[in-house]
Simulated scan of single mutants.
Amino acid sequence: MSRPTRAFRAALAALALLAAGPALPRPAAAAEQLVVAGSTDIDAMAPVLKAFEALYPEMRVIYHERETVGLYEEVLDGTLLPPPDVVISSATDLQIRLVNDGFSRPHVSEATRRLPDWAIWRDEAFGFTFEPLVFVVNPAEIDGDDVPRTRERLAALISGDPAFRGRVATYDIRQSGIGYLMASFDQSAMSDFWPFVARVAEGGLMTACCAGEVVELVASGKAAVGYNVLGSYAHARKAAGAPIEIVYPEDFMFVIARVAFIMKDAPNVAAAELFIDFLLSEAAQRVFAHESMLSAIDPAITDGLGQTTIRAAARGPIRPIPLNAALLAMTDPLRRQRFVDLWSQVTGKSPAE
């Protein structure tokens, strides 16, 4: 028997994806190119982009990977080339600012109508993952009984044992959009936020631009604990063999959704709408959960690791960050600068470092 052709294999892959969920509409006209700009690592996005191209082999996806703040600034300036059709970021406040300022266009479909209210705004911003902010621990550095499971226990560990001082790693909020966002939400939830920051920063605070670097500091043993780390990256590194343990904080746990929107002047609107619906489809959600380690926003889909959902595994309150106009306040430049300056002062960092 002759070997199946590439087109035949692509057709089989498309049929397999369609079998995993409701059929998706096809674009009115074939779009040769779809451009996506995102802050999500290409390694995490690649399986979903590949699945999309398998389902629609007439399309080719170009993916711009940027840090959250850099992505925001390039969208503002219009300097991304080729211009994007879809923009994706974990910095939900910056995404909401772009939507509010007229950079997006609405899209309504069966897929978007299924989203929970907190994960959609003005039919223009769409949350498509459900990712917790976790503690990451190196078990070779901290005995099981000492593993912090609340923020108070983390602060007590650092304050009470000189061996752990200067060995907490977290996002550098001076350059990380998600770091600034999460620190801002911590402040809103904690009456003792600034004393907490001072305690965990005793002896120095290790900071990094992004989740992968924070996890690496912990995995290498340079840091004993990583704080406020996106759980998706931590799970992916652990699955790849990194010597870390992941702790869902028990006092409260924020959850963010990566947010996608269609550019107002998207060159390929039909393809962009199709891609948004694909991100929200059962087929793509399973790829996110099982291959990309980005927890699905669909509560029926397991996380691909422990065959459970975050909602079932959490031992404390879960607080999803809603997509709404309240996030706009966090993008105010003066507010941001005051917050960063105070954080820098408390942690002993230079604001301009």
Rank of each mutant, 00 (worst) to 15 (best):
P139G: 10
V108Y: 02
Q95W: 00
S104Q: 05
L133C: 04
T129A: 08
S109A: 07
F130H: 12
L133D: 04
E110Q: 12
S109D: 07
H107S: 07
E110D: 13
R114F: 03
V134S: 08
D117Q: 09
N138V: 11
R113E: 13
E141K: 14
A111F: 12
D101R: 14
L133W: 12
I96P: 01
R113D: 13
D117C: 00
A119W: 09
E110T: 09
W118R: 01
T129V: 13
N100Q: 12
R114D: 09
E110G: 13
R97T: 07
W121Y: 14
D123G: 06
T129N: 11
F135N: 06
R122N: 15
L115N: 02
V137G: 08
N100E: 13
F130E: 04
S104V: 08
D117T: 10
E110S: 11
P106L: 02
R114I: 00
A111H: 11
R105F: 01
G127E: 10
E141W: 01
R97K: 14
H107D: 04
V136I: 12
I120M: 08
I96R: 00
V108R: 14
V134F: 09
V136F: 10
W121M: 02
P132W: 00
A125C: 07
H107G: 05
Q95A: 13
V134R: 05
E110M: 06
R122Y: 02
P106C: 04
A111R: 13
P132H: 02
F135L: 14
W118F: 15
E131H: 05
V108F: 01
R97Y: 12
V136N: 11
W118C: 09
R113A: 13
V99F: 03
V136E: 12
I120S: 13
V137L: 11
V99L: 05
E131V: 13
R113M: 09
N100A: 14
A119Y: 08
G102R: 06
T129C: 09
R97H: 14
A140L: 11
A119T: 10
Q95V: 15
F128P: 06
F126G: 07
D101K: 14
W118Q: 04
R113Y: 02
S109W: 03
A125W: 04
E110V: 08
I96C: 06
N100Y: 03
R97D: 15
I96H: 01
Q95F: 00
G127H: 11
W118V: 10
F126P: 06
A111P: 08
I120Y: 00
F135R: 04
L98S: 08
S109I: 02
S104H: 02
W118E: 10
F135I: 13
T129R: 04
F128L: 09
G102W: 03
L115T: 04
E124P: 00
G127P: 12
R122C: 05
I120V: 15
L98R: 11
V99H: 03
A119V: 12
